[in-house]
Amino acid sequence: MDITNAERIESREIPCQDHRLNPDQAMIDTRCVVDLSDEQLLRYGRQILLPDFGIEGQERLAAARVLIVGLGGLGSPVAMYLAAAGVGRIHLADFDRIDLSNLQRQILHDTDHIGWTKTASACQRLARLNPEVEIIAIQSRLSTESLRVVVAQVDLVVDCCDNFATRLAINGACFAAGVPLVSGAAIRMEGQITAFSGSSGGPCYRCLHPSEVHEDRTCSANGVLAPLVGIIGSIQATEAIKILTGLGTPLYGRLLLLDAATMDWRSLSLNADPECPVCSREASGSSGTSL
């Protein structure tokens, strides 16, 4: 497939499905899900076997709509695991094109795809991985407004982006819509993961970073070990599936930190900041547009 064909996939208009899910609920509403075919039972059998997952878990995934922001090092494993596991619809947001220097860690993309948009490359790979999954590509840069619109159409957001400003904007949109957010970040040999329920009372991503000023350290300037983003992204995918299916206990209120050089993990408890401009009671009483 050449770039022209890939672009066609990317710009294909895919009509929104009927809203089978209640957007006000963090847990997926399974009242009217589709029955699984024999082939689906085979494809997803190994996770359906898990006692707390079962057919009901698979149906919840099939009914789920997820937004992944960023198709780089973290977004690669997240998109591949969520597509392979059978999430019904995945919105993919990335405005960037593939560069040779991305391929060391962004395993969603092929050498043949250098110069392609990351969304086009992802559409092709994910369609091959699991043709049952509906993929919607968002190639433009996300604004506060466009984020608000797309977040309102999904059940969960996975933040795989590479900068603080976008992370704050995603957090604001998720909290305003009450949509759960799985947040991961990685650089050099260190990474962090947490999840936010989006329910009132917080905490939220802003509670994690109360100061306004924040200078991003980039992978291009600081380097990053390839499998590190795989570790962090895989945990993000795990948390996303758990939240969507009700499996286990989500990472809400906890921040996991990894130092891969010593392979030390820390788990810190994360409480709502009463002075948080996004999730505190006072903030939710005001306009609610704060980032």
Partner: peptide, 10 residues
């Protein structure tokens, strides 16, 4: 007291 660097990359 734990001292941790913030991470925002991806």
């Amino acid at each position: 007291v734990g001292i941790f660097p913030p991470v925002t990359g991806g």
